[in-house]
Nucleic acid binder design. Structure first.
Lengths: 161, 161
DNA sequence: GAACCACTGGGCAATCTGCCTACCGGAACG
DNA sequence: CGTTCCGGTAGGCAGATTGCCCAGTGGTTC
């Protein structure tokens, strides 16, 4: 169970890593003005805490040939949740899946090679008995790409009091 | 403009990096059974291509003290789009924002410290004249966390023909 | 006071990086 | 058919970084 909260130094470290991921421990310690061992210890702790899950490559689906993104809200037949999850897991174009409150039962993020191709993807997604209905919203612009820095900064000042 | 598509080696490299991010160029070349220079060249190309945007730390908002995630669909007053975008950018709990087709005009991902705190966040989000209406879906489970590996593998076999 | 903790500053061997050269086979081109 | 280009292989080298260790210090807790 992670001890929630990060202090100001953790925050600066994460922001630094987010801005310049290729940075090493040594260079980070120089930038932050602390000893190398401190940075090393903080990074170890942040990772075992689960605050930092990893440093996976940030892959752009568009550059992979999938420039179209959409969000689909799915309505699921009672008791079919697990089957639908398993089904959606097998579709590579499903990048993310959530179960939610509200009108729909699930929300998933899809990508496709084109608007036309999106039809194929949706057909594959909803081509499963457990899914009653789907409503899709195509993404036009992405004014705020997935970001974490502002939240980290917020958490850092909260933690630091 | 990126040359879309990746070949089988690119695919294996990205998957390897995704699975073991801390791996170095040298170790990667050993795992892939190719020369170090090749891995170096591929990584350089993938990054200048934009296929790999970077290696930022994958931060878990829950571990930061924000365990509640929600998606909000926003309806925007005509012509207020830019202002709303600017407004939402200033809210740290807004992790992501898209403009979409369909009933709503925008879709954003929010996090909060608790269900109660979510009310505060939503109030802040919709507390802006340009926003006509908001409908929020709280995430209960996340059966498929944001993933890219299946798509990379798909793109790799497509590219390899 | 004593124990504990995080941080500092230093040192060490082993490793990796960035960069370079030389060479090879296949593909494209005149 | 010969030349050039390109991506990959194999190797080498100096310099930087890593992982790990130690001893000392200041602040906190009990």
């Amino acid at each position: 169970m992670p001890t929630d909260g990060i202090d100001e130094l953790d925050g600066r470290l994460i922001v630094l890593l987010a801005r310049e991921p290729r940075i090493g421990v040594l260079e980070a310690s120089r930038r932050l003005g602390v000893a190398r061992g401190t940075v090393q210890a903080r990074m170890d702790r942040l990772q075992s805490n689960g605050v930092i899950r990893g440093f996976g490559p940030d892959v752009d689906p568009a550059a992979l040939g999938y420039p179209v993104t959409a969000f689909a809200t799915l309505e699921i037949k009672q008791g079919q949740g697990a089957d639908v999850r398993a089904h959606l897991t097998t579709v590579p174009e499903v990048l993310e899946l959530h179960t939610t409150t509200g009108h729909g039962d699930m929300l998933c993020r899809l990508v496709a090679r084109s608007n036309a191709d999106l039809q194929r993807v949706i057909d594959r997604v909803v081509g499963f008995e457990g899914i009653v209905r789907a409503s899709t919203a195509i993404v036009m612009e992405n004014p705020v790409p997935l970001r974490i820095i502002p939240l980290v900064e917020q958490a850092a000042v909260d933690g630091a009091g």
